[in-house]
Design a protein around this nucleic acid. Structure first.
Length: 114
DNA sequence: CGGCTGACTGCGA
DNA sequence: TTCGCAGCCAGCC
């Protein structure tokens, strides 16, 4: 358990939606990716995929949480504009051995489900 | 309370 | 296969 803040507010780990999103993201293995919808379902909020993206935005600068390993259902890097540079997300993934097919991650090879 | 905004998704065409 | 659209719901006024 680590201290957990954003917007200067302390959130309660077991009840907080954002915290639960981050807990799952931290478990994604190197070389794997998962999707917004998968995370939403896993924490029992199956229809809140968009809010999962919002939760990642809150910790974009936190290197404990590998936001770059979360992509959309098609394997596209829909969140790349929220990184320091437009190519940063892809660079991080490729450095971990993730392979692409054009603009998309090869999901059949790298998809990971909690 | 009510309205608006997304790093989304499933489904029909 | 790809595209458009309507749902969705936590946060933040």
């Amino acid at each position: 358990m680590f201290l957990y803040y954003y917007d200067n507010v302390r959130h309660e780990p077991m009840n907080d939606f954002f915290y639960r999103v981050h807990e799952v993201v931290m478990q994604i293995p190197v070389g794997k990716v998962t999707t917004y919808g998968t995370i939403a379902r896993h924490i029992g909020a199956g229809r809140s995929a968009r809010t999962v993206g919002f939760a990642l935005n809150a910790v974009a600068d936190d290197d404990r949480i590998p936001c770059h390993r979360v992509v959309n259902r098609n394997g596209e890097l829909s969140g790349k504009m929220h990184f320091a540079t437009p190519t940063r997300m892809r660079e991080l993934l490729e450095a971990e051995g993730i392979e692409f097919n054009g603009e998309r991650v090869k999901m059949e090879r790298h998809f990971w489900e909690p």
